[in-house]
Design a protein around this nucleic acid. Structure first.
Lengths: 132, 132
DNA sequence: TCAATTGCGTTATGCTATAACGTGTGCAAT
DNA sequence: ATTGCACACGTTATAGCATAACGCAATTGA
């Protein structure tokens, strides 16, 4: 999908996520944008919905947070499953695409006649820096 | 880990999950146990915490729900990663263990010097019955 | 006996997400 | 030009998920 021009709210939310060093919750984003006129959660969620749809932002289900896509120039939908390693100390996220994991899972789903639509692969732990 | 004797609350919660045909949220479990004397969310969450620790229940992060382990006689921790296919129509969950996906992800994590602690693999879509 | 641990019950609170309403703007079709 | 539509936006209210903090009771082991 080609990403269309972002609206003002979408740009504000995207910028906050891009500049962040770790995933942010919707309410954290809201707080960071109060000075820009944001007042309610829906303003954030609506922008996030679009950014997710465009594939430029990912949602991390296991920590109820959002992160800018680490590969902004490619289409995340085109390189299959996305996996995330999330450091529970520093919050850093490493994004990972692997066709082999992808194929293996898809083969299994096929054998179950299961039609996949959305997938989540998230590993929580500690990154190289934080693993004491 | 050997599962110790369950307490009364833990047994009640576990029974509800075992008899359910789909994952249940903590608040749904609470409602089902009001007749048994449950009054507050914490009673459910505390039982769930223990059941998760014992490995007899799984948490589905992407839908904020809980499901009894499909392989109650084995130790889910011993066969590596667990993956779930979740039907968005009927709610049915198929649990899946695959060493190849496991190894592949673990190798990648190792290459990143990332110490994995908890993992989530969840695929949402439609099961064979519900895929129109 | 005393202290430590564990489970339990209760109240209150905080965090996450969406429903439902209405407004304004741009744009295409008639 | 006006009508109708689609879309983004703003606001208030509410629903749904999860935990903090308190105190009590039972158990265990030094």
């Amino acid at each position: 999908m080609t990403t269309p021009m972002l609206t003002k709210n979408q740009s504000l939310v995207f910028d906050v996520l891009t500049k962040a060093e770790a995933p942010l919750s919707a309410y954290t984003i809201l707080d960071k944008l109060r000075d820009q006129g944001f007042r309610a959660p829906l303003q954030v969620y609506r922008a996030l919905d679009k950014l997710l749809e465009y594939g430029v932002v990912h949602r991390l289900e296991s920590i109820n947070s959002f992160v800018a896509c680490a590969h902004p120039h490619e289409d995340c939908h085109s390189h299959g499953l996305v996996a995330f390693a999330i450091c529970e100390s520093c919050g850093q996220v490493i994004e990972f695409h692997d066709h082999e994991v992808d194929h293996r899972l898809m083969d299994w789903l096929k054998s179950q006649k299961f039609k996949a639509e959305k997938s989540t692969i998230e590993i929580r732990g500690h990154c190289a820096n934080c693993a004491a």
